[in-house]
Amino acid sequence: MTSKAVTALVAAGALVAGGLVGGGVGAVAALASAEPHGPSAPPPVTGLPNGNQRYLPGVKVSAISDGWLKQKNQWTCEPDDSKHGPASGAKNQLDCTAPGDLSYLVSVEIEYDDETHVRAVDADCAPVIKPGNKYCTTTFANLAQLIVSFAHPDLQKQAQDWGTQNADSDNSTTIGGVRLAVMLDPHFIEATPDA
């Protein structure tokens, strides 16, 4: 073996040895210097569900209880005094009932925090009133029409038509940011904000 070959062999060996030592030292140094890495703040909240959306858009308590039910249709309304409180978690509930023979058989409940913050409105027809009853159908359709009309007067006829056509069904829809849901047993319509 020539001296050049020996030199090359030694150099190659030294290169490999140096590489092994250097690689080990480099890896250890990297591991030792590594810091926990990640965000310190959550992602932007844009587009998340917001508490302001808990309310039916534009709806006012008095426009339902006084304007629609009491003045136009001679209903009576009184604050709910049951212990369980409104299902929606609202602070208050107003219970309204139809006049005459339908008293406490056809009713409307308004769940609200204050005059301009209404969480849910529903109308119920008692089981003794069979499906197809015109008073129930009209009440359901008018409720749908009124609630949608506050923020979307252009959609109120669509809402009323839907209420009329679906008063005796298990069905739901969303019109103008309002979810309308009808159930047949028990028989009611509920208007809530669309989420």
Binding site: L15, G19, G22, A30
Partner: peptide, 27 residues
């Protein structure tokens, strides 16, 4: 020559491994 080769190997592998391990832990 051997010392130079060892030094080259040491530096190249050290820098390489540091970069590789750091990047793998950067996730």
């Amino acid at each position: 020559t051997a010392l130079a080769a060892a030094l080259v190997g040491l530096l190249a592998a050290g820098i390489g491994c540091f970069a590789l391990v750091t990047s793998s832990r950067d996730a």
